[in-house]
């Protein structure tokens, strides 16, 4: 896996819109963004309504994922090209999610919706419909997903990477600052976690930094190549961004995303917390 296999430029995306075998997918929480204009021919996935179980805090199961992709008109052999707002946070989350269910060919548009808009590239309001397919997912690949017990057991032994902002890491604030700061969980971080904010891996326009810059970033912050790695944030979308950087761009092995993240960890009774 290397950058060219998993990341496409906005130029490439624009030149390849509508190409058979490619499905462009916008992933946002704010679906109004898609409705106000999207890449020509792109479909939308709502990270919450489409990708989260409606009752429990978990993913949709394999059968529901198959039903979703079938209804959206995505085939197993399509190349899925993801982009979205929030510096591709949710697109990276969807990338990780597609990989969890075994989709082979998935790519991100570098810079996502922000770079596309800042470049003044065209957006379409056309309704997009694709003929239904019969999608078959794999069993979830749990080698890329961490659960809470593994996180607690990893304190002091694995690379734990807290990708939230420094003020969330220190417990000064409990959520990214575009959200109200009223939460049940305690503030702070998992003991021995390094704070390497996701934003250090991205440029202001939302594109990823170069492989050389990224390698240097994790080196400088004390990333140990000989250890397995778990990344977390608040609900698992920013840590998907870092998971993408570590595993897909830098090719590091044994990297998991802890999607329970701080909302779960900071609410657990009896686990250690550092501030």
């Amino acid at each position: 896996m290397s950058r060219n296999d998993v990341l496409v430029t906005a130029d490439w995306a624009q030149e390849n819109l509508g190409r058979p075998g490619l499905v462009f997918v916008e992933v946002d929480e704010d679906t109004a963004a898609y409705d106000g204009g999207h890449l020509e021919g792109a479909i939308k996935l709502d990270w919450k309504k489409d990708l989260q179980d409606p009752l429990r805090r978990d993913f949709v199961d394999k059968a529901a994922f198959e039903a979703l992709l079938s209804a959206k008109g995505i085939s197993n052999d399509d190349t899925v090209v993801l982009y979205g707002g929030n510096n591709n946070w949710f697109a990276a989350y969807a990338y990780w999610y597609f990989k969890l269910y075994g989709h082979q060919d998935v790519k991100l548009v570098d810079g996502g919706r922000k770079k596309w808009e800042l470049d003044g590239r065209p957006l379409s309001k056309d309704v997009v419909e694709r003929p239904a397919t019969t999608y078959q997912a794999s069993e979830p690949d749990l080698s890329i997903r961490a659960f809470r017990d593994e996180v607690v057991a990893s304190i002091g032994s694995k690379n734990l990477i807290d990708v939230r902002s420094p003020d969330e890491f220190s417990g000064k604030i409990l959520a990214p600052a575009h959200l109200p700061q009223e939460m049940a969980q305690k503030g702070g971080h998992v003991p021995t976690a390094m704070n390497i904010p996701w934003s250090k891996a991205a440029n202001e326009d939302g594109t990823f930094k170069t492989d050389e810059q990224l390698a240097a970033l994790y080196d400088e912050q004390g990333y140990d190549e000989n250890k397995a790695t778990i990344a977390y944030c608040r609900i698992g979308e920013r840590s998907s961004h870092t998971w993408f950087v570590l595993r897909e761009l830098l090719g590091k092995s044994d990297v998991k995303n802890y999607d329970g993240s701080w909302v779960e960890y900071g609410s657990l009774v009896g686990v250690p917390i550092e501030k």
Partner: peptide, 8 residues
């Protein structure tokens, strides 16, 4: 939750 809420 983490998506940008409507502004204003």
């Amino acid at each position: 939750m983490c998506g940008a809420p409507k502004q204003g």
